[in-house]
């Protein structure tokens, strides 16, 4: 079976606008991400991990170049069409307004509901499956601020699952998690890439986790991004620098 290319970035410059001036974070990058890819994005803070993820999910516009999502030109996709292709877990913490775990997961179905956001039986099936898959069944009626960091992170991942997108992006999901939760989280993501042929991009500072579970590494440094295999990572000069030489 031929693997499908989900994301193509060609000669693109990514960054953001500050005081009407372009701040270029990643310059002229060329990348391909395929189905079943589990990509770990590593790099120092401020090198462009979040910029890459935010650009892909439509929160930042690329400054230059072309991006193709599922062979469609990124610039021609509407917000809604993009939401059906890419789901994202960000670092922000959400709580209040009576939001329960179930409500947050149900937000994943927003791109598919009618004008008045009435959930149909089909919507409920998708949401309940996502809750079950992420092991949140016993916590679904808890308020978001009652959840532990690990459960909250799982809730947001369940939201992505409920969004039924081929591509999932996660921005530092393992920060603030305890040892066991970190491994559970990466195992869960690994399952999505293998069982559902999703393409998962996850940025993380936990190098050992990334090496253990991911299929490829995206090393971000000095305005550039390089895709390397997990096996070659310990010999990569930037990776050695990142690990402080503690990886042997």
């Amino acid at each position: 079976m031929e693997t499908k290319t989900y994301i193509t970035i060609s000669e693109a410059t990514l960054g953001y606008k500050k005081n009407k001036q372009n701040v270029e974070v990643l310059k002229n990058i060329n990348l391909n991400f395929n189905a079943t890819d589990f990509i770990g994005i590593v790099g120092l803070n401020g090198t462009g991990k979040s910029t890459l993820l935010k650009t892909l999910c439509g929160l930042l516009a690329p400054l230059n170049g072309n991006i193709y999502i599922n062979n469609k030109n990124y610039n021609q996709l509407t917000t809604l069409e993009l939401a059906k292709q890419i789901s994202v877990v960000l670092t922000e913490k959400i709580s209040g307004f009576n939001l329960t775990c179930f409500d947050a997961v149900a937000m994943g179905q927003l791109p598919y509901t009618s004008l008045f956001n009435t959930l149909t039986a089909q919507n409920y099936t998708v949401i309940n499956n996502a809750i079950e898959l992420c092991g949140l069944k016993n916590h679904q009626y808890k308020l978001l601020n009652e959840l532990s960091d690990g459960l909250f992170q799982k809730t947001m991942i369940a939201k992505c699952v409920a969004q039924q997108t081929p591509i999932m992006l996660l921005d530092e999901p393992s920060a603030f998690l305890d040892y066991a939760s970190k491994h559970e989280l990466f195992l869960l993501l690994q399952k999505f890439t293998i069982q559902q042929q999703k393409c998962v991009l996850v940025s993380s500072h936990d190098l050992d986790l990334v090496l253990k579970y991911c299929t490829k590494l995206l090393v971000v440094n000095n305005n550039s991004a390089e895709l390397i295999s997990v096996v070659s990572a310990p010999k990569n000069s930037i990776f050695i620098e990142l690990s402080g030489g503690h990886f042997k």
Binding site: T79, A83, I86, F97, D103, Q163
Partner: peptide, 11 residues
């Protein structure tokens, strides 16, 4: 309810 970024990602 989920804020600007998540709302955008919900289409």
């Amino acid at each position: 309810l989920l804020g600007e970024n998540y709302a955008t990602n919900s289409g």
